[in-house]
Amino acid sequence: MSTVIEQAVEARLVAAAPRMPTIPAKLRYDRRDPFAIRMTFPAPATLEGVEVCWTFSRELLAAGLQGPEGHGDVRVRPYGYGRTVLEFHAPEGTALVHVRSGEIREFLKATRDLVPVGREHLQMDLDDGLARLMRDAC
């Protein structure tokens, strides 16, 4: 059984111009890091011209489908019918993208099928993590 779920999503960048360009983004979930979601944007879609990956909690993404969530660098909220806004805050500025809520729900369902909510801790290898931490401390 695979330990990783990846799903391409169509994100629309909210900009000052009336037309919002489409950005091919990717959502990724790895059961070895069971609390985290990664959203990756390709190099041509970023100001720096390099691929950018944001990491945030699965719980934040799920809760943001229902109402505004987040107080840090990543914030999520519903927008109109069938859209979800993800806000990414960085020192360079803020990026807002719209993603179809259905795509997010489909992705979240696949993550819950792989690792049910409340059972994330069972996926973590704490002994290995502690051993790596201790090895790096020497």
Score class of each variant (00 low, 15 high):
V97S: 00
G82I: 05
G82K: 07
G49K: 04
L47H: 12
D30V: 07
A95P: 10
I23S: 09
S101A: 12
V99M: 01
V52I: 12
E69Q: 15
I104A: 02
Y81N: 13
A43T: 06
I37C: 10
F56C: 00
P78N: 07
M39Y: 04
C53V: 15
E103A: 14
P42R: 06
L96G: 07
Y29N: 03
G93Q: 02
D73S: 13
R105G: 10
L86F: 04
M39D: 03
I23L: 08
V52G: 03
P91L: 13
V76Q: 09
I104T: 06
A63S: 12
M20D: 06
T94H: 06
Y79K: 15
S57D: 02
T40S: 14
G72C: 06
L47S: 13
R28D: 04
V52R: 12
V97H: 04
L60K: 02
E59I: 10
G72N: 11
D30Y: 04
V76K: 05
V76L: 01
H98Y: 11
F41A: 03
A95F: 11
L27R: 03
F56P: 03
A36G: 10
V99Y: 00
V74T: 09
K26T: 14
G82P: 02
Q66C: 10
E106T: 14
H98S: 09
R75Y: 07
T22V: 15
M39W: 01
R32P: 08
I23K: 08
